[in-house]
Each structure stands twice: as structure tokens, then as C-alpha cells.
Amino acid sequence: MRELRVLLYETPHDPYMNLAFEEAFTRVRAADLTCDTLRIWRNDRAVVIGYFQEAGAEVKLAEAEKLGIRVVRRFTGGGAVYHDLGNINFALAIKAEGVKDPISYLYSYLIGGALRALKLLGASPRLENVNDIVVNQRKVSGVAASTRWGVYFLHGCILVNADLTALAKVLRVPKEKLRDKGVSEVKYRVANLSEVLGRELSYRELVKALVKGYEELLKAESYVDLPSKEEVRVAQLLYEYKYSRNEWNLYRAPHSAFKNLEEKLKEILA
């Protein structure tokens, strides 16, 4: 039976390291130094923006600073999301043979593990507008994906009992989007899963559901693991030279702008 490695490694107090590790475990998987991995993790009070986004256009930066909410960029496209401990993130780095359409593999197939997880928790989730997971007409989760480095990568966040007031305070909602969705404020489009289901949900419950959801989808047996020494080393380098830097987080520099880092990574990943 196929194996699925599960990592619960997280650094909620340091969102820069959390995102550095996201790239690290993906690239280490891509280099075949680990096997297919599902990572489940949390950030404490951060805004995570997409690879193509302008930080100041998406986030009220002064307000975020005042509230101690840090802004960090991820390596996938898509929109800005607010994270706190009431938000659970999942990420997969998978290799697969014979995939005809990588985009549909990611956004139609691989997203299915999260949908199964939500069903296991008693919800009736629907996939809308490519990457939104909606329960009872409210968006509780969004995903983003990449095929960079030769691996199928998908990650997403599930609002479980996040502080939606803080979310509304720091995220800018472009008027062009409001017109489209016919709503007045960001907090009315998204909702916490606990509110939608009308009951408290624990971190443990979410972890169990996500692991089971992906075991079922991938027909795999899971085991919980610790980060490998390569993942730790790669994450440290990515943290030091990219994810802790304004050039990456605020100024939208592409991966290719970090040449020294790539040279150092080559020594580990080659």
C-alpha cells in the first residue's frame, strides 16, 4: 500500500519560518530525499499573500503592524489570507505518474482530500470558482497550487474559529471584487467552520479528519514523521535568505532573484 508521510511541524510564532518550511519540504520531496508528504500546520496572527501580489494593495500594512500581524509571502499564486491559531493549514507535496493535466490533478483531484475531511466532520462542502471550498454558501477554505520543482504541490487553509474581525481589519477588499460578489464586507463572504457546523472543533479533530481524508483519496496508509535533516537545513537557508526578507515578503521579487540562496540549496538538493 502507498505510504503518506504526515508532518505536524509548525512554528506558529514565526510565520516566516512556517512559510520557509513550506517551500523546504516541497523541494526536498522534489529531490526524492523524502516521500509523499502531508503537512498540517498553523500560524499565529499573520497575513499570507500570494506570489504575484503587491503587499500594500492587499494588506493594510500600518494596521497589521499595529496589531502585531506579520505579512509573509508564499510561493503559490492566489489571494491574501489571514491566519491565526483558529485557522488550520494543510499542504501536500506529491509525485504522481501518468498525470495528463497537472492543473486539473491539483485543483480537481488533490483538493478532494480536504473535501473528504470536511465531510468527515459533518459538513457538505462544495468546490466553487476553481479553488474556494464553500459550506452552506460560506467560504471556509481556499487552496493554491504549484507544479514548480517537478512536484504536485497543493496547500490550503481552513477557517475553524479564526478571528474574523482581525481578518476584516487588515485585509483590503478591492471594490472590483465586492461588485462581483454582491457583498459589502470581507467578513460576510467567509465563515468559520465551527460557526457553519454549529459546534466547537478541536485542532486534533481537524488533523485526524485531514489525515483520513488524504489517506482515503490517495489510498495510502499514513505515518507521522519528524522533519528530515535536509528539510531543516533547507528551511533554515530559505528563512535566512528569502522568507525573512522584505525583498521577498513585500517587494515581490521572483525566486530567480535569490541566486546565492539557490547556489547553497543546490549543494543539498542536487
Partner: peptide
């Protein structure tokens, strides 16, 4: 020129 946003593009670096 600078093009930014929350779109999805593959390969990503085609934007630059």
C-alpha cells in the same frame, strides 16, 4: 511595468 494580483499562472515566472 508591474503586474500584480491574485491570479493563477503556470509556470509562475512567466509573469516576470
Amino acid at each position: 511595468v508591474r503586474i500584480t494580483g491574485d491570479f493563477f499562472m503556470y509556470p509562475e515566472d512567466a509573469l516576470w
